[in-house]
Design a protein around this nucleic acid. Structure first.
Length: 294
DNA sequence: TACCAGGTAAAAA
DNA sequence: TTTTTACATGGT
């Protein structure tokens, strides 16, 4: 293992809190971790990266990883996964004084989302999570990773597009995906392998162009495109307003009576938080999860 | 047991 | 064109 490399972030960050929040979205939550660890695909092989936070103020991160020669790339990957480039200060200024979001941001000071190492993984997760509970989706994802992923130490990197493209459909179904979702995942994998969809190039496109590129594929509707934008691409103003979890939590926190909102009402309720509407929704979801005793 | 859970495409009306 | 329906798993 090489490193650590030291980074100082712009604006507040609390890795421990962010790990706890990420864990709260996953069933069977393990004991709260202080160290972020992930397997990262590096072309033909996979590497492993670890991140620690020795100092909260100023927010310092220490990144280590293996193999040693991949440390620079692993550092880039870790920065990406932890939203290291996102400065929370303008968001906090925006919600300061808001009766609900101000209080939530105060409780969750330093919280940032986490995202998968690749947009491909985010898109597969989106398909897996369609319609079924996060609990069920998590189990299915774990089976996919175990069956098709690349082991590194005690971790497993998410399967590569070519692996899923070439896999026998029945083996993907055996992980718990429906026949239809198996077609979606393999269609995505083939589209990426063939070069018809350049995931790297998406990063340079505006939101609407990304939406169009994603929804062109069978199995990827508006929700999946918005999920990719906000969760995978850090477009913090994007909100999947049709998302059941978002509709429920925005209702609970922002609507009189606390009832689940319609997608239109979700958009209305989040208007004051532009250009951070997606981040605001994430804070509400995290607050609900963490407060619920998870 | 039935129903719901961070949707989508395809069939039926 | 608009409205149903099928899909798979896991918790309650």
């Amino acid at each position: 293992m090489a490193g650590p490399v030291r980074m100082v972030l712009d604006g507040p960050y609390d890795l421990s809190l962010s790990l706890r929040a990420a864990g709260s979205f996953v069933p069977g939550t393990a004991a709260p971790a202080e160290v972020f660890r992930a397997a990262v695909a590096l072309g033909a092989i996979a590497g492993m990266v670890e991140v620690r936070q020795p100092s909260l103020r100023p927010p310092v991160l220490e990144v280590s990883g293996s193999p040693p020669e991949a440390l620079p790339r692993l550092q880039v990957a870790a920065s990406r996964m932890l939203f290291a480039g996102l400065d929370l200060r303008p968001f906090y200024r925006l919600v300061e004084g808001h009766p609900v979001l101000g209080a939530v941001a105060g409780r969750l000071f330093g919280l940032k989302p986490m995202r998968p190492a690749s947009l491909f993984e985010m898109l597969v997760i989106a398909v897996v999570e369609q319609q079924i509970s996060l609990m069920a989706a998590y189990r299915i994802r774990k089976r996919l990773v175990k069956r098709f992923g690349e082991p590194v130490d005690d971790l497993v990197a998410f399967p590569q597009p070519d692996t899923l493209a070439e896999a026998p459909p029945e083996e993907i179904r055996a992980c718990g995906l429906s026949g239809r979702k198996t077609e979606y995942v393999q269609g995505l994998a083939q589209t990426v392998v063939s070069g018809a969809l350049d995931l790297g190039a998406l990063e340079d496109l505006p939101d609407d162009a990304v939406r169009a590129a994603i929804t062109r594929m069978r199995g990827f509707g508006p929700w999946s495109a918005e999920y990719l934008l906000v969760r995978g691409m850090a477009r913090v103003d994007v909100v999947p307003a049709g998302d059941l979890g978002v509709r429920t939590v925005t209702g609970r926190y922002l609507a009189p009576g606390g009832v689940r909102l319609s997608p239109e009402d979700v958009r209305r309720a989040l208007v004051p938080f532009a250009p951070y509407r997606g981040l605001a929704a994430f804070y509400l979801l995290a607050d609900a999860r963490l407060g619920a005793g998870n």
